[in-house]
Design a protein around this nucleic acid. Structure first.
Lengths: 197, 197
DNA sequence: ACTTGACCGGAGGCATCCTCCGTTTTACGC
DNA sequence: GCGTAAAACGGAGGATGCCTCCGGTCAAGT
């Protein structure tokens, strides 16, 4: 049984091409949104279409890889937020951080929602989504424990609302004042009122 | 100057083709969403691609024409809602009616938001959107007059929230319970609390 | 250096969009 | 009815993008 599998060292051009593809893809996603032409990405990276699809079989796979960098930034912000004493304020900031993350590229909310829905692990965006929902739920529970958030609220609900707001930003290019009012609407929706129990 | 313009009677095939296109388009929008293939629509209507594009120069134009029928249903519901005494309940039902209207076809929220943003009248969806926003604002003002909705809320804000919820329904296929919680979140966000002034 | 297998590139098949123009259809005057 | 011209039709075709496939290339190990 012991396969002994003397693996060859990975070739250097593989890593080089992968890095070039990721950089080009990020540029295009930023400028053109997630629907950008993958052939244009390949051309800008200086590789053929086949190479792109070998590295990233689907658009979602490429997107997930590009988002990996940003996920780390989000994780850093999460660490900062964990220092905050006020559970309600921590939740608030976490929601804003997620919103910004979701707004990184125009059209990003679509595939994220699709990934959150279909639980199948063949979608490379599913796992990140699950993690975000779980993290949100932690913040929600903490704030509920402090009596600052209604008991009926789920982490998933606020994840949904954050994706919705991000979609509104990207699709609508709504002015900042409207967004603030929309956020205020949601926030006063989930917060526990003083006279409630 | 008087051109006298003795206009010829419009040809009969024009109206026939237009009707066939609208029916085929509605079927396809219902089944495939607003992104459906326009060539398939033309084929199903039994006309060439050129005829489709002559009648409806853009996808939005076709969409607006198909939505016209549904707009009339919405108008009928608006008339019903106008009978309701409780301003808050009227607003509530109006928001639900808009949500259902926005959920008619999968992917409909996107072009609606685009139309609401760009004020240019070359987009055939702009006028319907403006009307919906204005109507929503009337309901909001009425409910504010009765002290049931916070003064800071604008009709546009609740229009946005309705589009967002519709997008969530369409894109996410979220379960009904989550949607109810999301709606409750928004509703408790815009409602005037008893202890507020 | 040379072997070998992993890797590369881009041509090509397919789908869709949208336009252009030769052909057909229709309304109207006789 | 019938001729005529304006209006409308239709589908070929150029452009773009997706994704696959396979002959050629390149680097890791000997």
């Amino acid at each position: 049984m012991s396969p002994k599998q003397q693996r060859r060292r990975p070739r250097s051009d593989v890593q080089r091409n992968r890095a070039a593809l990721l950089e080009a893809a990020q540029r295009h996603f930023l400028q053109q949104g997630v629907g950008t032409s993958l052939e244009a990405v390949a051309k800008e990276a200086g590789v053929g279409a086949g190479t792109l699809y070998r590295h990233f079989p689907t658009r979602e796979a490429l997107l997930a890889a590009v988002l990996q960098t940003r996920s780390e930034e989000l994780e850093a912000r999460r660490a900062d937020i964990a220092q905050i004493d006020d559970a309600s304020e921590a939740l608030r900031q976490w929601l804003r951080a997620m919103e910004e993350y979701f707004s990184a590229f125009s059209g990003l909310p679509e595939p994220l929602m699709a990934a959150a829905r279909e639980q199948q692990p063949d979608n490379p965006l599913t796992v990140p989504c699950e993690n975000l929902i779980a993290t949100t739920d932690e913040y929600v529970r903490a704030a509920q424990g402090a009596g600052q958030v209604r008991p009926s609220v789920r982490g998933y609900d606020l994840f949904l609302s954050a994706v919705s707001v991000a979609w509104t930003m990207g699709a609508g290019a709504t002015d900042e004042a409207s967004l603030d009012r929309l956020r205020a609407l949601i926030e006063s929706g989930y917060r526990q009122q003083n006279d409630e129990e």
